[in-house]
Amino acid sequence: MKKQGLQWSFSILGAMMLLFIIAPVLGLLLSSSPAKLFETARDPEVKNSIMLTLGTSMAGTLLFAFAAVPFSWILARYSFPFKKLITAIIDLPVVIPHSAAGIAVLGFISRDTLVGKAGSAVGFNFVGHPAGIMLAMAFVSLPYLINAARDGFISVPERLEKAALTLGASPVRVFFTISLPLAWKNILSGLILMFARGMSEFGAVIIIAYHPMITPVLIYERFTSFGLKYAQPVSVVFILVVLVFFMILRLLLSKTKKS
């Protein structure tokens, strides 16, 4: 009887919390008429910003995956001096305020820095450029990929890698045929998380680039310039696009889990 009481009170608490998440989103979704949403979805400014947001986040995720995934394997397999410090550094972007993260990245890529000068040499400026947006998104979202991939590699028994070595495989072949495929579920889920986190970033991006406008910045701009009524439809369209994207990616993930 007592246990049931506990179950009930915890469930009620949980339901209240769920309502706290669902209510605002549902309210937002119902705030605009379908006609208004349709019109917004066809607005070139909105369309371009959504494409830019998805594109930069995707590009950043894939580009950084090339370094992040092998590095995660190192983190999973080896112990080395300052490993704890390095792990803490990786988690840093999660805990620092994102506007501060934007300032930090800006200081790193602005025109008078080494990276900025390298950019200028090949003819573009990171600031106000999709490449800069991509870097800002990657900065705040990279920990999600590294941590997920590291957990994935940890879950792969080291014996399987050793067995592959004794079967004559080179370390590179072992990585690509054993470690990577077996950790793939976690890596994919890390890629999705990083992509999602990058896409929803506002604070860091607005400091690097107000223009071209990613959707979170566009929503903010419509809100400050025209008010809530104008910001709502864009938000709804963006949320719907993101939701569809996630459903597809989740489906992909559940398929890999089954196989």
Partner: peptide, 26 residues
């Protein structure tokens, strides 16, 4: 030219038996 069989077999779970056997014949 030393072959080692692990105590827990260490068969690659994501490959069919055939592919496991072929692994060393790369």
């Amino acid at each position: 030219k030393v072959g080692l069989v692990f105590q827990d077999h260490a068969i690659f779970p994501h490959m069919k038996v055939k592919k496991n056997l072929a692994y060393a014949l790369h």
